[in-house]
Amino acid sequence: MNRVIELDPEEALLRQGQGALLVDVRENSERAAGLPVGAIALPLGQVAARIHEHADTERELLLICAAGARSLRAATQLQALGYARVASIRGGCGAWRVHALPWAQALEPADFLERYDRHLRLPQVGLEGQRRLQRARVAIIGAGGLGSPVALYLAAAGVGHIRLIDDDRVDRSNLQRQVLHTEAAVGDYKVDSARERLLALNPTLDLDTRASRIDAANIERLLDGVELVIDGSDNFPTRYLISDACVQLRLPLVYGAVERFSGQVSVFAAGLRRGQSPCYRCLFPEPPLEAPNCAEAGVLGVLPGLIGMLQATEALKWLLGIGRALDGRLLSVDALGMVFRELQVPVDPECVVCAPGRVFGGYFDYEQSCSAR
């Protein structure tokens, strides 16, 4: 293997003008102050795996880092892959700026690059994926046991616009599992308590809180403008209402439920893929005549955290377009035995809501037929 050529910044700039590709191999978080004009950003850990997306083996490549050490390593890696025309820039970006060569300011603020550094390192996320999360608009229904971990993790992950809907107030009995809230918030609206906690975690968040109880008259208005809905409710009337609305509004729904020591998670995308993906009614066509909620049956305090984190995971995967969603699958969790089971959820061709060609008959009020919150 040939020794890697090192170029002074001025020579590198000249070659760049003649068609060479300048590759900045620093970490994304290091680019808070910008990068050389015309350079592509490809961190050292991704160079070998992704350089083919930008250049073939015949193109001349100029590698630059902070001071020159990492660019030498990257050049060695590329030589081993068959890239013969490779050079490292002596002194790196420090020397580039000392010589006052063309420099582009970063498109993202330093806070963005630092805060989401671990996401930016993931090839499945990267800068474009993080920007996608920043643009995303998500509704979380319920700021209780499930909504707490969902909201915390989506806010921390950089989901830019979160609408949190809950009409309840914080009760001391909530604190055993609803980790958004504290003793000081007892008596306050949950959405107000959540606002304080979430903005303390991520002040860049666009948080839209609604102290409203969802019903047939307001659900479409409350879900207007979002692209994904996460169900953190704790009763059957609300679940059916949310599911029906998501089918009508063509929205994907991330479902979660807990009771005592067990929980469930799924994704219902019938609103986007009628006849191909199920809705909640395909799984449960009718609500049970009697079903206790958490206040009546009890729930292990950590269980909503587990299920809520799984919901947040499914939401992030969906927003990023990565992995395999739980669409058409129900993940069942038995916390006592720590057993996870996966069940297939087929599409019901006779579903009263999501069957292809089915005319929507309006929202039905189940408050009289199954237990309410």
Rank of each mutant, 00 (worst) to 15 (best):
Val4Arg: 06
Leu7His: 11
Leu14Gly: 02
Asp24His: 02
Val25Asp: 01
Glu27Gly: 06
Gly45Phe: 07
Arg59Gly: 03
Ile64Asn: 07
Ala75His: 03
Thr76Ile: 06
Thr76Phe: 03
Gln79Met: 09
Tyr83Leu: 01
Ile89Trp: 04
Trp96Ile: 10
Gln105His: 09
Ala106Asn: 02
Pro109Cys: 08
Phe112Leu: 10
Asp117His: 07
His119Cys: 09
Leu122Pro: 01
Glu128His: 05
Leu133Ala: 05
Leu152Lys: 12
Ala157Val: 08
Gly158Pro: 00
Arg163Pro: 11
Leu164Ile: 09
Leu164Arg: 12
Val179Gly: 03
Ala184Met: 11
Val186Arg: 01
Arg197Cys: 08
Ala200Val: 06
Leu201Thr: 13
Pro203Phe: 10
Asp208Gln: 15
Arg210Lys: 14
Ala211Trp: 13
Ala211Phe: 14
Ser212Met: 10
Ile214Cys: 11
Ile219Tyr: 07
Arg221Asn: 14
Leu223Asp: 12
Asp224Ser: 14
Asp224Lys: 10
Val229Asp: 03
Asp231Gly: 07
Pro237Val: 11
Pro237Cys: 06
Arg239Gln: 01
Leu241Cys: 04
Ile242Pro: 00
Pro252Gly: 10
Gly256Gln: 04
Ala269Val: 01
Leu272Trp: 13
Gly275Cys: 11
Tyr280Arg: 00
Phe284Trp: 14
Pro288Phe: 00
Ala291Asn: 05
Asn293His: 08
Asn293Trp: 03
Ala297Asp: 10
Gly301Asn: 06
Leu303Gln: 12
Leu310Gln: 12
Ala315Cys: 04
Ala315Lys: 09
Gly321Val: 08
Gly323Cys: 10
Ser332Pro: 01
Val333Leu: 15
Arg341Gly: 06
Arg341Ser: 14
Cys351Gln: 04
Cys354Ser: 14
Val359Pro: 02
Cys370Ala: 10
